[in-house]
Simulated scan of single mutants.
Amino acid sequence: MLHSVFAAAELTKNMFENGEMVYKQGPLGGCTNLNKCELIKFTNLIPCTGCSYSILDAETMPKVNKAIKNLKQSIAFLPENSPYRLQVLMETQSIITAVNKAGYADLLEIKIE
């Protein structure tokens, strides 16, 4: 087994060195996209949720919790039917869905009504 772990580590190292694999910080965790991100747009507040290149793990949960807190604070005084408020609520739900799917719901600090 040790040999297979070493072989996998060597393969991974070679992929990084050859530009076949990358890791970079994203807004809510890590990203393995080799190409320019096509998801970052003005209309998408948290682009990484649902992205197949996104790495969401326990270490990224403080960033996720901070993002949810900031989003909630940004809409606190907006009217119930504000388009921006509705968009933020949808984005927040997307984050929660991604966290649940990744198995880290117990690490969410803020629950959304």
Rank of each mutant, 00 (worst) to 15 (best):
N44C: 11
G26T: 10
K66P: 11
L28K: 03
P83W: 00
M61F: 08
M61W: 07
K36L: 08
R85A: 11
L28Y: 05
I40A: 12
L11S: 14
E59F: 03
K66T: 13
E109R: 11
Q73F: 15
N65Y: 06
N70Q: 09
G50W: 05
A105Y: 02
E20F: 01
E38K: 13
F42T: 15
C37Q: 05
I96H: 03
M90T: 15
K41C: 04
C31P: 01
D57K: 00
Y23M: 09
I95P: 09
Q93W: 04
K66E: 14
N81W: 04
I46R: 07
K111E: 08
A102N: 05
K41V: 06
A58Q: 06
I96T: 13
N100A: 11
N33A: 03
M90P: 02
M1F: 12
I95W: 06
F6H: 14
A9V: 11
S4E: 14
T92H: 03
Q25N: 07
F6I: 14
I112G: 15
M1G: 13
V64T: 07
I68P: 01
K72R: 15
N33S: 08
A76N: 12
A7F: 02
L71F: 05
P79M: 02
F6D: 04
I46E: 15
P83H: 00
L56A: 07
I40E: 13
F6P: 09
L45F: 03
S94F: 15
N18P: 06
L2C: 07
E59G: 05
N81D: 05
L28I: 09
L11T: 13
Y104T: 08
F42V: 10
A105N: 08
L2V: 12
L86C: 08
I95M: 07
Q93N: 11
E17V: 03
V22K: 01
T97E: 10
L107K: 13
T60I: 01
C31W: 02
H3S: 15
F42I: 10
K111N: 11
P79Y: 05
G26F: 12
S4G: 12
G19Q: 02
M61I: 15
I96D: 02
K13C: 06
I112E: 13
I96S: 01
K41A: 06
L28W: 06
C31F: 09
